[in-house]
Amino acid sequence: MSDPTTPLVATPGQTIGPFFGYALPVAGGELLVPASHPGAVRLRGTVYDGHGDPVPDALLEIWQADAEGRASTAEGSLRRDPFEFTGFGRTPVDPAGRYTFTTVVPGATTPGRAPFVAMTVFARGLLDRLLTRVYLPLDEDALAADPFLAGVPEDRRHTLVATRDEHGFVFDVRLQGEDETVFLGHGSPA
C-alpha cells in the first residue's frame, strides 16, 4: 500500500429492508442485452430461505464481462441503451422468489480461470449483502481446472455452478440449509 497509515475501518452494512422496491429497481435492469440479441441467454433462478421457501423480497445484482471477456466501462446501467453492454444487471425477485436476467455468456478474463458472473444478494432479513459467483456449465475441463473452484469443498462446489435449461442457465440461491450457496469473503483470510 502506498499509504503507510492504518487502513480505515469499513462502515458496516445493514439490511436492504422491505421498502427498496420503489427506489432501486430500474426499467430494464434485468436486461444486460435484449432478448433479440444473437448471443442472448437467460440466467434465471429462485432465492430460498432455510426452510426451502422462496424469498419474495430479495434484490439481485450481477456484474460480468462481455462475450469477449472485457469488463465494460460504459455508463447506462440505470438508463439503458439496448445497443450498449454495461455488464451490470439489477432485478428484484418476484413474489415467488424468482429472478430472470437476459445476458450473454461471459468470455474468459483471466488465463487459466473459468469465467463467471459475479452476483450480489440483498434481502430483508439479510443483515449484510452476500457475494457469490455463478459459473456456467459450458466447459467442464475449465471448471475442473479452476483453482478457486478446486479450493471449494467438493460437496458444496455445485452450488456455484448453474445448470442448463432450454434458454440458458438456472442458478438458485439458497441462503441457508442443505445445499446452502457458497458465499464469498474477499478480505484477508481469517
Binding site: 430461505d49 432455510g50 426452510h51 421457501d53 424469498v55 464481462a65 469488463a71 478474463t109 483471466t110 480461470r113 469465467p115 463467471f116 434481502a123 430483508r124 432479513g125 439479510l126 443483515l127 452476500l130 459467483r133 478457486f148 471449494v152 458444496r156 441462503l175 441457508q176 440449509g177 446452502e180 450457496t181 457458497v182 458465499f183 464469498l184 469473503g185 474477499h186 478480505g187 483470510p189 481469517a190
Partner: peptide
C-alpha cells in the same frame, strides 16, 4: 431463516 450458517468462503477477487 435468511442467514447463511457456513462461514464465508475466502476468494481472492479476480476478473
Amino acid at each position: 431463516l435468511r442467514h447463511p450458517t457456513k462461514d464465508l468462503h475466502h476468494a481472492d477477487p479476480e476478473g
